[in-house]
């Protein structure tokens, strides 16, 4: 399976709807929160229809709850599949987490214990989802604020094993790696280096907040310097990977997001001699500076 390098994108948010439709900003692609468009009608679907005319779109879900001990929700999956058939996204992603149990939903990305039992459970569910959607699934690491005493492997080993067991792909959220690394006292570079090179198809970049006792993934700030540095390392390790700026609270005008996009582009130029060309799956020849 080849995933195209889409370039640099941002999340499609309500605040920017009018600007995106009217002014058609020069952004390479958009990521949409799948659940926000699993509705019957109205403005969200109109806006998405307009966006689809001009930009590639990736669908990013928050409610698949792959790690829940509950069975998969096929009503949800049918809606997701219907949306995907219409949107024809470059890919579909969701998270390495559970969001609820017993049919209830916390609407939060809750961390999982990294055990063999959980790995087998998750791999089985991802395979079911991929079969149902008839497309591969891309899994994102979450920021976490707790660890389980009975985890028997690291998150990066768990993710690597998951890609082998479930034949799925990865969305490496660079900010989440950094946040979790600080909260759980591990080296974020070790995490990145351990991820399988041929499985990472997307990066997320976002801002976080320092709460003194822990870092919180708030998506309400520009990307922090430490995360940019980690991103530069990720670029060296993984090459041209579609990159997205996430901003969900205190969302700035679109130009504010573009400033972050420009920074990401500069980071790439700091690593490679030539800017990446957008493509639809053709491997790129890289000219590494190092």
């Amino acid at each position: 399976m080849k995933f195209p390098f889409l370039g640099f994108g941002v999340g499609l948010r309500t605040r920017h709807y009018s600007h995106v439709i009217k002014d058609r900003p020069e952004i390479d692609w958009f990521e949409v929160i799948s659940e926000n468009y699993m509705v019957s009608g109205g403005r969200p679907l109109f806006v998405l229809r307009e966006v689809l005319k001009h930009y590639p779109v990736v669908m990013h879900g928050v409610s698949l709850s792959l790690g829940s001990a509950d069975p998969l929700n096929f009503d949800y999956l049918k809606k997701l599949k219907n949306l995907a058939e219409w949107v024809q996204p470059a890919w579909i992603s969701d998270h390495l987490c559970w969001t609820g149990i017993g049919g209830k939903n916390a609407h939060d990305l809750l961390p999982l214990p990294y055990t063999e039992e959980c790995l087998a459970h998750l791999a089985s569910k991802i395979k079911q989802v991929q079969d149902f959607l008839e497309r591969p699934l891309v899994i994102e690491n979450v920021s976490s604020y707790l660890e389980y005493t009975h985890s028997t492997m690291t998150e990066w080993d768990f993710l690597s094993a998951l890609t082998r067991e479930a034949d799925c792909y990865l969305l490496a959220d660079i900010n989440n790696i950094y946040v979790s690394a600080k909260n759980h006292s591990f080296d974020p570079a070790t995490y990145l280096e351990a991820l399988p090179k041929n499985r990472v198809v997307q990066f997320h970049l976002a801002g976080h907040s320092d709460k003194g006792t822990h870092l919180l993934d708030t998506h309400d700030h520009p990307v922090k310097k430490e995360v940019w540095d980690l991103y530069a390392k990720a670029l060296k390790l993984f090459g041209p990977v579609s990159t997205l700026i996430e901003w969900d609270e205190h969302i700035p005008p679109f130009e504010g997001l573009m400033d972050e996009v420009e920074k990401a582009k500069k980071k790439i130029l700091g690593v490679y001699e030539q800017p990446f060309a957008k493509n639809r799956g053709t491997p790129l020849e890289l000219h590494h500076r190092a």
Partner: peptide, 18 residues
Amino acid sequence: LPIRPSTSLSPVERLDIY
């Protein structure tokens, strides 16, 4: 309580975040 403490937070404090 299957939660590890961090260097600065107890298991209860970590659960409180969630």
